[in-house]
Protein backbone atom coordinates (compact mmCIF):
# COMPACT_ATOMS: atom_id res chain seq x y z
CA UNK A 1 0.00 0.00 0.00
CA UNK A 2 2.79 2.39 0.86
CA UNK A 3 5.16 1.48 -1.98
CA UNK A 4 4.04 4.15 -4.41
CA UNK A 5 4.89 6.98 -2.03
CA UNK A 6 8.48 5.98 -1.35
CA UNK A 7 10.41 7.03 -4.50
CA UNK A 8 10.09 10.79 -4.09
CA UNK A 9 11.03 10.70 -0.42
CA UNK A 10 14.49 11.34 0.97
CA UNK A 11 15.76 8.80 3.50
CA UNK A 12 17.26 9.85 6.80
CA UNK A 13 20.97 9.77 7.42
CA UNK A 14 22.11 6.12 7.90
CA UNK A 15 23.92 7.14 11.08
CA UNK A 16 20.45 7.50 12.59
CA UNK A 17 20.36 3.68 12.85
CA UNK A 18 23.48 3.77 15.00
CA UNK A 19 22.26 6.56 17.25
CA UNK A 20 18.86 4.92 17.85
CA UNK A 21 20.62 1.60 18.51
CA UNK A 22 22.80 3.23 21.14
CA UNK A 23 19.84 5.07 22.64
CA UNK A 24 17.60 2.00 22.86
CA UNK A 25 20.45 -0.27 24.01
CA UNK A 26 20.95 2.13 26.92
CA UNK A 27 17.22 2.68 27.43
CA UNK A 28 16.34 -1.01 27.72
CA UNK A 29 19.42 -1.88 29.78
CA UNK A 30 17.56 -1.71 33.14
CA UNK A 31 15.29 -4.58 32.00
CA UNK A 32 18.31 -6.67 31.09
CA UNK A 33 19.95 -5.92 34.42
CA UNK A 34 16.72 -6.81 36.22
CA UNK A 35 16.54 -10.13 34.41
CA UNK A 36 20.20 -10.74 35.19
CA UNK A 37 19.56 -10.11 38.88
CA UNK A 38 16.72 -12.64 38.85
CA UNK A 39 19.03 -15.11 37.16
CA UNK A 40 21.69 -14.61 39.81
CA UNK A 41 19.11 -14.99 42.58
CA UNK A 42 18.24 -18.40 41.10
CA UNK A 43 14.52 -18.13 41.82
CA UNK A 44 13.66 -19.65 38.45
CA UNK A 45 15.16 -22.53 36.45
CA UNK A 46 18.45 -21.30 34.94
CA UNK A 47 18.03 -19.32 31.73
CA UNK A 48 14.23 -19.66 31.61
CA UNK A 49 13.75 -15.94 32.13
CA UNK A 50 17.06 -14.38 31.18
CA UNK A 51 17.37 -15.95 27.73
CA UNK A 52 14.01 -14.72 26.36
CA UNK A 53 14.58 -11.27 27.85
CA UNK A 54 18.05 -11.17 26.33
CA UNK A 55 16.70 -12.14 22.89
CA UNK A 56 13.96 -9.52 23.15
CA UNK A 57 16.58 -6.98 24.18
CA UNK A 58 18.71 -7.76 21.12
CA UNK A 59 15.63 -7.49 18.91
CA UNK A 60 14.50 -4.16 20.36
CA UNK A 61 17.96 -2.62 20.43
CA UNK A 62 19.36 -3.83 17.11
CA UNK A 63 16.64 -4.99 14.72
CA UNK A 64 13.87 -2.48 15.47
CA UNK A 65 15.97 0.71 14.91
CA UNK A 66 16.98 -0.56 11.47
CA UNK A 67 13.38 -1.27 10.52
CA UNK A 68 12.14 1.98 11.90
CA UNK A 69 14.77 3.85 9.94
CA UNK A 70 13.69 2.28 6.67
CA UNK A 71 10.15 3.60 7.12
CA UNK A 72 11.15 7.19 7.74
CA UNK A 73 11.22 9.60 4.87
CA UNK A 74 10.82 13.28 4.20
CA UNK A 75 10.42 15.68 1.35
CA UNK A 76 11.14 19.41 1.35
CA UNK A 77 8.94 21.07 -1.24
CA UNK A 78 9.15 24.72 -2.16
CA UNK A 79 6.25 25.56 0.14
CA UNK A 80 5.71 22.51 2.35
CA UNK A 81 7.43 19.85 4.41
CA UNK A 82 6.26 16.25 4.17
CA UNK A 83 7.24 13.63 6.74
CA UNK A 84 6.37 9.93 6.45
CA UNK A 85 6.97 7.46 9.25
CA UNK A 86 5.88 4.12 10.62
CA UNK A 87 4.73 0.90 9.04
CA UNK A 88 2.27 -0.63 11.48
CA UNK A 89 1.15 2.87 12.42
CA UNK A 90 1.72 4.71 9.19
CA UNK A 91 1.64 8.50 9.34
CA UNK A 92 2.09 10.83 6.44
CA UNK A 93 2.13 14.46 7.58
CA UNK A 94 2.32 17.62 5.53
CA UNK A 95 3.05 21.03 7.06
CA UNK A 96 2.82 24.11 4.84
CA UNK A 97 5.67 26.53 5.56
CA UNK A 98 3.20 29.38 5.94
CA UNK A 99 1.69 27.68 8.96
CA UNK A 100 4.90 27.15 10.91
CA UNK A 101 5.17 29.32 14.01
CA UNK A 102 8.68 28.49 15.08
CA UNK A 103 11.39 25.95 14.37
CA UNK A 104 13.76 24.08 16.68
CA UNK A 105 16.96 22.26 15.84
CA UNK A 106 17.93 19.96 18.71
CA UNK A 107 21.05 17.93 19.26
CA UNK A 108 21.35 15.36 22.02
CA UNK A 109 24.65 14.01 23.41
CA UNK A 110 24.55 10.88 21.21
CA UNK A 111 23.52 12.91 18.18
CA UNK A 112 26.50 15.19 18.65
CA UNK A 113 29.01 12.35 18.29
CA UNK A 114 27.54 11.50 14.89
CA UNK A 115 26.86 15.10 13.90
CA UNK A 116 23.11 14.50 13.69
CA UNK A 117 20.23 16.73 14.75
CA UNK A 118 16.43 16.71 15.07
CA UNK A 119 14.31 19.32 13.33
CA UNK A 120 11.03 20.22 15.07
CA UNK A 121 8.44 22.55 13.58
CA UNK A 122 5.59 24.02 15.64
CA UNK A 123 2.22 25.04 14.27
CA UNK A 124 -0.85 26.51 15.95
CA UNK A 125 -2.92 23.38 15.34
CA UNK A 126 -4.13 21.23 18.21
CA UNK A 127 -3.56 17.95 16.43
CA UNK A 128 0.06 17.61 15.33
CA UNK A 129 1.07 20.99 16.68
CA UNK A 130 4.66 19.78 16.82
CA UNK A 131 6.12 17.70 14.01
CA UNK A 132 9.60 16.26 14.44
CA UNK A 133 12.10 14.94 11.95
CA UNK A 134 15.12 13.19 13.50
CA UNK A 135 18.28 11.82 11.92
CA UNK A 136 19.40 14.76 9.82
CA UNK A 137 22.96 15.96 9.42
CA UNK A 138 23.29 18.95 11.68
CA UNK A 139 24.28 21.18 8.77
CA UNK A 140 21.30 19.90 6.74
CA UNK A 141 18.92 20.59 9.60
CA UNK A 142 20.25 24.14 9.90
CA UNK A 143 19.94 24.63 6.14
CA UNK A 144 16.35 23.36 6.24
CA UNK A 145 15.58 25.72 9.08
CA UNK A 146 16.96 28.65 7.11
CA UNK A 147 15.00 27.62 4.02
CA UNK A 148 11.75 27.42 5.99
CA UNK A 149 12.47 30.75 7.66
CA UNK A 150 13.13 32.40 4.33
CA UNK A 151 9.88 30.97 2.97
CA UNK A 152 7.95 32.30 5.97
CA UNK A 153 9.52 35.72 5.64
CA UNK A 154 8.72 35.90 1.95
CA UNK A 155 5.16 34.99 2.84
CA UNK A 156 4.64 37.67 5.43
CA UNK A 157 6.35 40.54 3.60
Amino acid sequence: MTDDSSPDLIALNPAYVTTTRIASALGYLPFLIGAGALEVAQLLPPGSFFVPVFLLYLFMAFVVPKRRYSHWGYDMGSDRLRIVRGYMFYRDTVVPFGRIQHIDVEQGPIDRRYDLATLTVHTAGNHNSTVTLPGLFHADALAMREAIRAAIRADTI
Partner: peptide, 17 residues
Amino acid sequence: KVQTVEIYQGPIARRQG
Protein backbone atom coordinates in the same frame (compact mmCIF):
# COMPACT_ATOMS: atom_id res chain seq x y z
CA LYS B 1 -7.37 27.63 8.16
CA VAL B 2 -5.80 24.16 8.07
CA GLN B 3 -2.45 24.00 9.87
CA THR B 4 -1.28 20.46 9.10
CA VAL B 5 -2.61 17.43 7.27
CA GLU B 6 -1.84 13.88 8.29
CA ILE B 7 -2.76 10.62 6.63
CA TYR B 8 -2.92 7.86 9.20
CA GLN B 9 -3.16 4.08 8.85
CA GLY B 10 -3.32 1.75 11.82
CA PRO B 11 -2.36 -1.92 11.43
CA ILE B 12 -5.92 -3.02 10.63
CA ALA B 13 -6.77 -0.15 8.32
CA ARG B 14 -3.53 -0.76 6.42
CA ARG B 15 -4.60 -4.30 5.59
CA GLN B 16 -7.94 -2.98 4.38
CA GLY B 17 -6.30 -0.31 2.27
